[in-house]
Design a protein around this nucleic acid. Structure first.
Lengths: 357, 357
DNA sequence: CTGTTAGCGCGTTCAG
DNA sequence: CTGAACGCGCTAACAG
């Protein structure tokens, strides 16, 4: 089914078909109708590749996410897709598997076949971002303030939200807290840590423990966080918090009575885990919408107006409480039951050791 | 950056560049090198649209899911994408928002621009599926046995898994159970119901209540399920189960002591909610892999070998238990505290009424 | 307002 | 083994 067959059936030239299909006003009404009828009967749909070649416009956007396994990113791309879809755009998604190199590689590949690229929480280094800046196609970034990089972006006010979490813990009476840190290249991770160190002045003594961004990462890292005898552990995100809670339960440490736990993002499941997570409610849907808005602005040839950082309100649920009275020892940091297991002292256990059921 | 510039730089014809780039063996080694060097230096990447137009192959697959908001589908497409990506294919994803019409429309649109289409749990009617069958491009289906439709597909052995759930409940001593049903056009929903009715012969009396596929749907529908005085409620999927559990907790009905609850899918969060969900462990990753395998086979020109239904083992956690002793009334079906609220008696409450925190 | 025609960038015959 | 030339299906000048 090509444009030519439609032209023949409607007894017009292919140019007229082309114009009629795109609703050009410079085409006589009756001819346009004839074309539309013929097209409908033949089930004709223009070939996107050909259109792309001819116009240089694909009506596709590329999206690269660190992983599809985090509902947070899924929510963002769902919203982004809804907005793009309403504007007649399709979405080519790529999963970088938390690998900064793959992220850049995928970005380059995608840039050849889309009109614009959206990078969600990219972990790639700044200079990689800068390379992308020089590409012919617009690149928009979500949740990464590009320091010295001129890419348009939307981001959550991570700093303020993390500060609120610290404040919450502080007002509860916590002083010694651990932080299960996120992936190295992650801007949200950097911002959270920045807020945490600032909170040091406000009376919180926080020690960071490398973890990651998954349930398993939280599960694995929790135990070494205990070495610092904290009364609370703040987690990079809700997934990590869920993993941490799971390990705490296994160790017989009650949250929040013996240990407070906080997450970040407020994914849909955060309120249903046990105990319900105190966290920061990141506006995923709004991020997606704004990202599309930026894309649309750039595609329209305008310099986009930089959106203000999006607030992520503190959601206080049941995973945080006042620290219990100290009884000689700090928390359960030196609980004898723990030392007997292998792997104690190392930050990570070998992968795959989180038990099933 | 076109092929022509590379040809010029390497001082060869564009045909040679074309051949060299795709590793044609009929090109002299030194020439091939010269081309590769030039291409690398110029950062040349072939234009996918042009390639697509010339060859009729886009190296893209389309994927349409009922919604991106269910981690189940995200897990499937993550796995599908991993396999496709390894084969050099990109993934164009479309979200049908649980709308059968949109599903078909998206499918048609996508078929023009991809080499193959994967439909995940399509809700569209059989005749729509049949239309897709006649398309030029291969269409592969996940989790929908196409009755009388010849589309290649992979599916979970939903019937057996649901039968196992029924058996589990039966062996616990339950006899009156409610079923929070999934979306109308959903094949998994049909299969689950088929297994349930078969279980009727095995001693389970099940009444179905329309719900849906989301947390909110489960939350909304739970109460009307109570009207039938069940001692257990089986849910279409884990999301619905989580919603049901949430509403039960609100009503002060303890699960599993006063009410057993089962899910389906075993999404990652199923074991972390309270109480941890008894459910069937659907192999999302395997579904994605097999779906790609089918696509690859068809693209290679082979008639694909139909994979056996994938088992979804029963996972018994804490959301199910023996029914408690009956005391005159069945369960809490007629608890006086409930009748005073508005909306009792209707299956659905108005949307958006599930409280936040 | 309509039709003719020249590319868009690339793969691929077909001669050499 | 290489290069010249054609065509993939469509859009956009341009001429009528």
């Amino acid at each position: 089914m090509t444009i030519r067959q439609v032209a023949e059936a409607a007894d017009v030239s292919i140019a007229t078909v082309s114009r009629a299909m795109r609703g050009s006003s410079t085409v006589r009404a009756d001819l346009a109708d004839r074309v539309r009828v013929a097209a409908a009967e033949l089930g004709y749909r223009p070939n996107p590749a050909a259109q792309g070649l001819a116009t240089g416009v694909t009506r596709m956007i590329g999206v690269v996410v660190p992983t599809l396994a985090n509902p947070y990113f899924d929510d963002v791309i769902k919203s982004l897709n809804a907005a793009a879809s309403a504007a007649g755009y399709r979405m080519l998604v790529a999963d970088a598997n938390e690998d900064p190199d793959e992220e850049l590689e995928l970005s380059h590949g995608l840039l050849r076949q889309v009109d614009a690229l959206v990078l969600v929480s990219p972990r790639m280094p700044v200079n990689a971002l800068r390379i992308l800046e020089d590409e012919a196609r617009p690149v928009v970034v979500v949740n990464r303030a590009a320091d010295g990089v001129g890419l348009p972006f939307v981001a959550v006010d991570t700093y303020a939200a993390m500060a609120a979490i610290c404040g919450h813990l502080g007002s509860l009476g916590h002083t010694d807290v651990a932080y299960l840190a996120g992936p190295a290249g992650s801007w949200p991770q950097q911002e959270r840590w920045r807020a945490i160190t600032a909170a040091g002045g406000a009376g919180l003594r926080v020690t960071a423990v490398p973890a990651g961004s998954t349930i398993e990462a939280g599960y694995m890292a929790l135990e070494s966080a205990l070495d610092h005898a904290p009364t609370a552990v703040m987690c990079f995100n809700d997934l990590v918090a869920i993993g941490a809670l799971s390990r705490l339960a296994e160790l017989g440490i009650d949250a929040p009575r013996e240990m407070s736990v906080t997450g970040f993002d407020d994914i849909a499941f955060a309120r249903f885990v046990r105990p319900p997570l105190t966290t920061a409610a990141s506006p995923q849907a709004e991020l997606g919408r704004q990202a599309w808005s930026l894309v649309a602005q750039v595609l329209a040839g305008n310099r986009p107006t930089a959106p203000a950082p999006l607030p992520a309100p503190l959601i206080i649920r049941e995973s945080t409480a006042a620290p219990r009275e100290r009884t000689g020892e700090h928390g359960r940091g030196r609980d004898p039951g723990r030392g007997s297991r292998e792997g104690t002292g190392s930050v990570h256990r070998s992968p795959g050791t989180m038990p099933g059921d």
